Amino acid sequence: MHQVKAVVARAKGQPVELTTIHVPDPGPGEALVQVQACGVCHTDLHYREGGINDEFPFLLGHEAAGVVEAVGEGVTEVSPGDFVVLNWRAVCGECRACKRGDLQYCFNTHNAAQKMTLEDGTELSPALGIGAFAEKTLVAAGQCTKVDPHARPAAAGLLGCGVMAGLGAAINTGGATRGKSVAVIGCGGVGAAAIAGAALSGASPIIAVDIDLAKLETATKLGATHTVDSSQSDAVAEIKAICAQYYEGAEGADVVIEAVGRPETWKQGFYARDLAGVLVLVGVPTPEMTVPDLPLLDVFGRGGALKSSWYGDCLPSRDFPMMIDLYQQGRLDLDAFVTEEIGLDDIESAFEKMHHGNVLRSVVVF
Rank of each mutant, 00 (worst) to 15 (best):
A165M: 07
T122N: 08
A11L: 03
M354V: 02
L200S: 12
C41G: 02
T286I: 15
I342S: 05
D274G: 13
G166Q: 01
R331P: 08
L334K: 05
E135L: 13
Y105D: 04
P149G: 06
D274R: 14
E348V: 07
D120H: 04
D102G: 10
I239Q: 00
Q3D: 06
G166Y: 02
Q268D: 08
V184D: 01
I195R: 14
I185S: 02
Q232Y: 00
V209Y: 08
G66V: 05
V84Y: 03
V291E: 15
G277R: 02
P153Y: 04
W310G: 10
M164E: 11
A165H: 02
S204M: 06
V228L: 13
R178T: 08
L332G: 06
V4K: 11
V280A: 00
S204G: 06
P57A: 06
D82Y: 10
Y47Q: 09
N358H: 05
G51S: 05
D274N: 15
G202N: 09
A272E: 00
R178W: 07
H62R: 11
G303I: 06
Y246I: 11
A241N: 12
G188I: 12
S201F: 08
H150T: 14
D298I: 11
G202E: 05
D102I: 10
N53T: 02
R262D: 13
C144H: 09
G162Y: 00
A65E: 04
G330T: 06
G81M: 08
P26A: 00
A272Y: 04
C106R: 06
